[in-house]
Amino acid sequence: MIALSEQDRAGVDAAIAASLERLQERSGPLGEGAVALAEAAAAAGEKGKRLRPALVVAAYRAFAPVDGEEPNAAAPSAADEALWQVGAAFELLHTGFVVHDDLIDRDVERRGAPNVAGRFRARAAAYGASPDEIVIVGDAAAVLAGDLLLFEATRLIATADASASVRATLFEILDDAILVSAAGELADVENAARADVPDTDALLVAAHDKTAAYSFEAPLVAGAALAGASVGTRDALAAAAADLGLAFQLVDDLIGTFGSRSQAGREPGADLRESKRTPLIGLARRTGAWPRVSSAIALAYTGPVAVRRAQEELEASGAREDLVALVRSSLENARAQAASPDLSPAAAALIGDIAAAIEGRVP
């Protein structure tokens, strides 16, 4: 995937660190609980891949080639600082969503360590809370930490060194990203709760909305806006980014079902164990093999042997092949959008590079 240069990574990391340090300093006078909450929020933002800041920076440099050269390490410009701050905002937006997503999924760990809820469950147990109260405290902390991170993302946009019109555009981008992502996450949760599997189109809409809007469209368009790109240019970029984001999420679904431990960063077949209603499952539902697939998925939670059987049934149904075809179709659409006269050769090349990186993740 697109990566930050060493200098850009340092700039983004410094902006994130400054934001989280400010949060912790301001929490000090508010008591031990507030300090612990700020520390947990800061810990949630550590060791991220920085995908979204990388997209902000890459789009900015694609649309501002004259001013978008590598920053001077000795004396970064005000434009560099603003760019890194906006990139940091999208990383903290992602972190806030992850904290809330863990709460929705009832997870108490992230990357093998206690997440916000896990930390506060342990804290509550240490001061003698009952089992029910331990869960309530952990859940409350996750809600509040996620809220703080979402506000920090907003504050970074508000204080970026940009013109009033550019800041207004950035706020519109952030506003849309949050609303669409919330709608997508809710649809995902409701889809999982329905008695029957929703149709594939509904699952594809949820897959796009919960991830593509804030992970691809918003960062890429924000970088272009910061570089002064026109409305028409931003619209053309958003159209390509929507296809890129959908393809990225569909590949994540493939990895969550068929990927190795190293690819998924967790137990293989985790999506099957959790009975997630992804577009892959929607595609399988369309086939005559659905009764066998459904029965196999219903037992996947029992262990690796059952997971492997569910994988085999999904593969035999043709659903995996169909989902890979959807990924490739989305990427081809993105590449076609890159040919828009509103997009520069540098922007088209960026879209092509991202598409190639996404295609390379297919398990």
Rank of each mutant, 00 (worst) to 15 (best):
A177S: 12
V180Y: 08
V180F: 06
S181W: 06
A182Q: 12
A182R: 05
A183D: 15
G184E: 11
L186E: 13
A187D: 15
A187E: 12
V189G: 09
A192K: 07
A192D: 11
A192N: 10
A193M: 11
R194F: 06
R194E: 09
V197W: 03
P198Y: 12
D199C: 13
D199K: 08
D201T: 14
A202K: 13
L204H: 14
A206F: 14
A207G: 01
D209R: 08
T211V: 06
A212Q: 05
A213E: 13
S215Y: 10
S215N: 08
E217K: 01
P219E: 05
P219R: 00
L220P: 02
L220G: 03
V221N: 01
A222N: 04
L226F: 11
A227E: 04
A227H: 04
G228K: 12
G232Y: 04
T233R: 00
L237T: 02
A240W: 00
A241P: 02
A242M: 05
L244P: 02
F248Q: 02
L250K: 01
D252E: 10
D253S: 04
D253M: 05
F258T: 01
G259W: 04
G259E: 02
G259V: 02
S260E: 13
S262W: 06
E267M: 10
P268C: 08
P268Y: 13
G269S: 09
D271S: 03
D271Y: 05
S275G: 09
R277Y: 05
T278F: 08
L280A: 12
L280G: 09
I281F: 02
I281D: 01
G282S: 11
G282Q: 00
G282Y: 01
A284W: 02
T287L: 07
W290I: 01
P291H: 10
R292V: 10
V293Y: 06
A296I: 08
A298H: 07
A300P: 00
P304M: 11
P304S: 15
A306G: 05
V307G: 11
R308M: 09
R308H: 12
R309D: 13
R309G: 08
A310L: 09
E312I: 10
E313T: 12
E315P: 05
A316Q: 15
S317I: 08
R320D: 11
R320A: 11
E321A: 15
